[in-house]
């Protein structure tokens, strides 16, 4: 646990040691505002809730979260520090968790900084704050899912651009897994059970309930499983790439 804490601290520190963190947070907040007030029609809807805000989270995360995740392992590999890290008495799982949790905490900080929107809606009306809290939790979990995918993919390459692009594509697949764009590719030949299975993997389906304020245990388990699976895969990729270096 102490080991994960040390790795976590170092990683989080490194986000803020460079302009990356500040640029990211500013862009994130600006886009969130733009989407909510212009595209989402926050005022026009005339309702005291944050649907206009949360509806756009999956799409913003699609591009912004891979940008946080891409450096996690690709940068270590490129600069050679992965050799330093993995010859310290640290297990691959500790290393993966420490880094992932730091990236997730960073995403959480950016998400928390959207609080003025929450203040605005409370100033203008009388929203269901329980539902808003639930949606924040759901959004944070979804960010974790994207990050776990990105962290795993980042371990494959020493090139951050490649890590970014591939992560966006894979996350896009996960977002739309319940929609014809993805399902049509399978429905022609795969048995129905597989098509249904793929459809149930959709981030959007699982997020849409939470974003309305309905926390279903199945949705929580779903995101926990996505995170767990990809982080486990991450440790395997790490070992495999290491033996191969």
């Amino acid at each position: 646990m102490n080991m994960i804490k040390a790795l976590f601290r170092r990683e989080l520190q490194s986000y803020f040691a460079t302009p990356v963190a500040y640029v990211f947070i500013v862009i994130f907040l600006m886009l969130m505002g733009t989407f909510t007030f212009y595209l989402g029609g926050f005022y026009e809807r005339g309702q005291a809730d944050l649907r206009a805000f949360f509806n756009y989270h999956p799409w913003l995360y699609l591009f912004l979260v891979p940008a946080i995740a891409m450096r996690l392992w690709a940068e270590e590999r490129k600069s050679g520090t992965v050799e330093l890290l993995m010859t310290l008495p640290v297990t691959p799982l500790q290393a993966v968790l420490g880094k992932f949790l730091a990236a997730w905490a960073f995403a959480g900080i950016a998400l928390l900084l959207t609080f003025p929107i929450w203040i605005t809606v409370n100033y203008l009306g009388d929203p269901d704050n329980g539902a808003i809290l639930a949606a924040y939790v759901g959004s944070f979990l979804m960010a974790g899912g994207f990050l776990a995918i990105g962290s795993c993919i980042s371990a494959f390459t020493r090139n951050q651009v490649i890590a970014f692009v591939i992560t966006v594509v894979v996350c896009f697949g996960f977002l739309l897994a319940g929609f014809p764009l993805v399902l049509d590719a399978f429905s022609g030949w795969a048995p129905q059970i597989i098509v249904d299975g793929i459809a149930s993997l959709s981030f959007l389906t699982h997020f849409s309930d939470i974003s309305r304020g309905v926390i279903d245990v199945r949705d929580l388990i779903y995101f926990a499983l996505v995170i767990g699976t990809f982080l486990y895969a991450n440790t395997i990729v790490l070992r495999w790439k290491q033996a191969d270096l």
């Binding site: 804490k5 040390a6 790795l7 601290r9 170092r10 520190q13 050679g80 330093l84 310290l88 008495p89």
Partner: peptide, 23 residues
Amino acid sequence: PEGAPLYAEMTPRQFLEFIADVR
């Protein structure tokens, strides 16, 4: 390691304290 890879964005103090934590 070969080439002495280091976390470039850290200061030597932060870096050595990190190593002390992990050790």
